[in-house]
């Protein structure tokens, strides 16, 4: 498996990153060499191996259904780059 220039554009878009031409070719080169590195694992037979998603093999703890949070809008909106009338603002989205 190797990566092509068009793949870089697709994944950059999925990740919402914009790349200059230089960045694109750098990315292609370095990502290709990383993939070459990780591709070593393709040689291992793992057909009988169960995947391990998490090192902590326990089960999910449950939280009681209780409202513990109060209104923090005033504090949290101060972090926002743009907010008005209690809303976070982004450039107009046309659906």
């Amino acid at each position: 498996m190797s990566i092509a220039a068009k793949d870089i554009d697709i994944i950059a878009h999925l990740a919402r990153l914009s790349l200059t031409d230089t960045e694109r070719s750098d990315a292609l080169g370095s990502i290709a060499s990383i993939l070459q590195l990780v591709n070593q694992m393709q040689a291992v037979d793992t057909s009988a191996v169960a995947p391990l998603a998490h090192p902590f093999e326990a089960s999910q703890r449950l939280r009681e259904d209780v409202v513990t949070e109060s209104d923090q809008r005033e504090t949290l909106l101060t972090l926002a780059p743009s907010a008005e009338q209690g809303l976070f603002l982004v450039p107009k989205v046309i659906e």
Binding site: L14, L17, L35, V38, M41, T46, P51
Partner: peptide, 25 residues
């Protein structure tokens, strides 16, 4: 970008799926 690629359709099993199995090993 590497992570996005490894999870993307068509590559998930070969990369992320495989890596999880190797993690078990």
């Amino acid at each position: 970008m590497v992570g996005t690629y490894a999870l993307s359709a068509g590559y998930y099993e070969a990369y992320y799926g495989k890596a999880q199995k190797v993690r078990r090993l």
